[in-house]
Design a protein around this nucleic acid. Structure first.
Lengths: 256, 256
DNA sequence: GTTCGTCAACGAACACCGTTCCATTCGAAA
DNA sequence: TTTCGAATGGAACGGTGTTCGTTGACGAAC
C-alpha cells in the first residue's frame, strides 16, 4: 500500500524476466508496454481438473497423474488445484468415482442373482480396464463417492434378492470390489495395459520356461503345472475362475 | 590424462569444500593433510541391505523404506545400494521373499484340506501383518523369489490333495495370495497398522454415522445395513468371511 | 617394493514428487 | 467506483528414485 514504487519495480522485473528472450538481455532494458493480453480462459473447476486428470490417466497411466502434470495440462501451476481439490488422495477418489459412474448393475432378479453378480463384476472390470490406472487409485480406499455408493447399493440389492444373509452381503460388497480391483491392478501394473497380444504371449512363454526350469526335487508340482499356472493370462479365463469361486462361495451361504 | 593440473585443482576444491567449517572460509586456504581416517566397516551386501530395509519397514511402515533411509541406516549414501540391488522394486521383491520365508503351510492331508488351506491363509496374513507394509510391496508382483515359490508349491500340494482339478488349483494359487495380500494392504494403507483399538472404533463409528446419514430414498439398503457394513473391522471376522467364501467356492469345484 | 588396473563406495546432482506460502489479480457486491 | 474476498499461480520446501563421475583401497603384475 505504501510503497507503490517498489511494487511497480517488482512488476517491471517480473515482466523483464518473463520477456527475456533466448539472448538473455539485461532485465533493465525498456519493457514492452503491451500487457500479455491475458488469455481469457475459463475458470478452473473441480470438473475440469478431474477431466484433465482422467485424460492423463488414460493416456499415460496412474504414475503420470501428478498434481504438477494435471496443472500443466490446464496451463496453470500446481497450487491452483488446491483451491478445488483437497489433495492428491481426494483427486484419486474423484477419479475412482468418475469410473464408478460407468459401471452397470442389473435390476435384482432372485432367479438369476448369481449370473447378475457375475455380470456386475464383469462390468466393473471392463470399466477399470478402460481407465488403466484407476484400479491403482481405488485400491486401499473405501469408496465413499456418490457413484461408488450407488454401486454398493445395487450390489447389496442383488445379494439380498439371492437370499444372502445381511452380514454376508455386507462383507461381500467389500470382497467383490477388492477382488476386481486387485485383478485390474495386477493387469495395470508396470504398464501392462499397453501390452500387445504378442507381448503377453512372449511373457507367458518366458514365465512357463522359468517354471519348467526349476529344480525338480524341490518344485515337482509347480513344474508339472507350469502350463496351467501360466494359462488364462490372455483372456478372461483367470478372472472368470475367480468370480466363479466367489459367487459359488456366496451361494453356499445363501438361505435358499 | 592430459590435464593433470586441472584434476589436481578439482581435488583441492573438493577437499576445501569438504573441510570448510561453519565459518565458510575461502576454499583456497591450505588443506589439512589429515585424511578422514576411513572407518573400516564391514562391506555392503545384499543381505545387510535387506536387513536394514526390513527393520525400517517394521518400525516405520512401507513409506519409510526409501533408498535414502536404508542407505542412511547403513551409514552410506543411496548410490552405494545400487551395486547390490537393481532398484527399489527389486528391493521390494526381496522384502516380500524374506517375509514369505516365515509363512507356514501344513503337510497335505486329504481329509482336512479345506481347514489346511484356511490355516495357510491365516499364516500368510499373520506374517504380512507382522511386517506392516510388505503387502504394499507384494501387491501386483508375481512372486518369483525362492521362498515365495516354495509357498506356491505347498499350496498346490494341499489343493491337489483336496481333489481340486489342476487348472483350478493353478488359478487358485493366484487368487489366494491376491486376496490375502489385498486384505493386508487395505489394513496397512495410511499407517492403519499403528492404529489403536480406540482409533478403529472411532473410525467405525464415524463411518457408520456417515452411512446412516445418507439420503434414505437413494440408499435404503446401505442405511439398513450400516452396522453390518462397518462391523468386523476390528478382529478377523471380515477376513474369515473371505477365506470361507473362497474355500467353499473351491470346494464346489473339487472332484470328490 | 613399486606400479597399475579394477571396482566397490559414495558425494553430488538431476528430475521428479506433493504441498504450502503469499503476492498478485479478478469479479462481484456495496 | 470502491472494496474485499476468493481464485490464481510462481517460488520454494522437503522429500523421492536414480545416475554420474571421482575416489581410494586392494590385489596382481612387474
Amino acid at each position: 500500500m505504501t510503497n507503490t514504487v517498489l511494487q511497480t519495480n517488482a512488476v517491471l522485473v517480473k515482466y523483464a524476466v518473463r520477456y527475456s528472450g533466448p539472448m538473455n538481455q539485461s532485465p533493465w532494458q525498456p519493457i514492452s508496454p503491451e500487457k500479455p493480453a491475458r488469455p481469457v480462459r475459463e475458470p478452473l473447476t473441480r470438473e475440469r481438473i478431474v477431466d484433465a486428470a482422467m485424460a492423463l490417466l488414460v493416456e499415460q497411466g496412474y504414475e503420470a497423474v501428478s498434481m504438477r502434470k494435471v496443472a500443466q495440462a490446464l496451463n496453470t501451476g500446481p497450487a491452483s488445484l488446491y483451491a478445488h481439490v483437497a489433495n492428491k488422495k481426494e483427486l484419486d477418489q474423484l477419479l475412482v468415482d468418475r469410473a464408478a459412474q460407468e459401471m452397470e448393475f442389473p435390476e435384482p432378479d432372485p432367479e438369476h442373482w448369481q449370473e447378475q453378480l457375475k455380470d456386475s463384476m464383469r462390468s466393473m472390470l471392463k470399466v477399470m480396464r478402460s481407465y488403466p490406472g484407476v484400479a491403482r487409485a481405488a485400491i486401499g480406499q473405501i469408496p465413499l463417492g456418490e457413484r461408488a455408493l450407488e454401486s454398493t447399493e445395487k450390489m447389496l440389492a442383488i445379494l439380498k434378492a439371492g437370499g444372502v444373509p445381511d452380514q454376508a452381503a455386507a462383507w461381500a460388497v467389500d470382497l467383490i470390489p477388492l477382488y476386481v480391483t486387485a485383478t485390474a491392478f495386477e493387469e495395470s501394473v508396470q504398464g501392462a495395459w499397453a501390452w500387445t497380444t504378442e507381448d503377453i504371449e512372449g511373457f507367458v512363454t518366458q514365465l512357463r520356461g522359468f517354471f519348467e526350469g526349476l529344480p525338480p526335487e524341490k518344485f515337482p508340482i509347480t513344474i508339472a503345472l507350469a502350463t496351467a499356472l501360466t494359462s488364462g493370462s490372455l483372456g478372461d479365463e483367470r478372472f472368470e475362475f475367480g468370480i466363479q469361486v466367489i459367487v459359488a462361495g456366496l451361494a453356499s451361504l445363501a438361505e435358499r
